[in-house]
Amino acid sequence: MTRPLLLLSAALLFSPALLAQQIQRQLGDFDFKLGTTPSRTMAQGLISPSALGAFHGGLDLSHPSGWYIGQYAPSMGVTPDSTLRLDNYLGYKHHFDSTLGYEVGLIHYSQPNIANADSYALYGGISVLGSRFGGALRDNPDNRTGTLFADLGQLPLFNVDLTVKVAHHRLGTPFTIGDGSQVSGFSDWSLELSRPWLGLDLNLIYSSSDLDGGGCEAYAGMNTYCESVVTLKAQRNFF
């Protein structure tokens, strides 16, 4: 599955038409999405973050029955200092009515150019009154991770969407830092506020972990940086 999906992603992502965040088409009974940002609900909050400066994108194919399959590449590995990374996922989503539903699935994390870099995560969650709450357990011998994810939707009065993610990482082998002490585990988290403004999608993100100083040598979490960082992103859809 990985090679055909990757080749299709690469061909379409290099197309001049792909200036938007996402393209959506109907292919028979299937809903096809292609874009530079992840499109899946629960999986969107749990896939690997895009590497800074890396070329990224992916695709998603879903069926009215609730089954879906997709692939997202946080890094396509097209520059000399980047490594190919792929997140493949398969899941099922069901709504009881407009206010309540659930979702379960499996994510395969891989770096095809690096031996023994594959790992898997089981994820699931519920949607209630427009908010989503999910979690995942990732089996990686070097870094076993449990993640909680909440998308609270639009906050009353403020007209902003709030997303929160918290993870705990347990290292398979304690990491020895410069002062001789060891780090066997750590936690990290992120909080994101987003809203449309003058045709732009604005995102204010705060991320941090419980490591600092020399302890950051052991950091290999979900955020780009170990210590506290505030990031402002502005994105625009062209159609």
Rank of each mutant, 00 (worst) to 15 (best):
W197N: 06
G53C: 02
S98T: 14
D31I: 02
K93W: 14
S181Y: 06
G91L: 08
S184A: 15
S127G: 15
V164F: 10
L152T: 03
N223Y: 02
E227Q: 12
P141E: 10
D87I: 12
E217I: 03
G199L: 10
G146I: 13
D188F: 00
M42N: 06
P74N: 03
Y102E: 12
N88T: 14
G153V: 07
R236L: 11
I69V: 13
G105H: 05
S62L: 00
D29G: 09
H63S: 01
G146K: 11
P38W: 04
H95C: 13
G124I: 03
S39D: 08
T145P: 04
G214N: 15
A10S: 07
P74K: 04
L100V: 15
A234W: 06
T173R: 14
N237A: 14
L232R: 05
H169G: 04
G77M: 04
F30K: 04
Y206G: 10
K165D: 14
L12Q: 04
C226T: 04
L90E: 11
K33W: 05
I126K: 01
Y89L: 12
W197K: 08
D188L: 00
L100S: 14
L5C: 02
S110N: 12
V164S: 10
L46P: 01
L202V: 13
Y72T: 02
L90K: 10
V104E: 09
G199Q: 07
N203R: 15
G134E: 11
F55S: 04
Y120F: 14
L12V: 01
P74M: 02
D210I: 02
L5M: 13
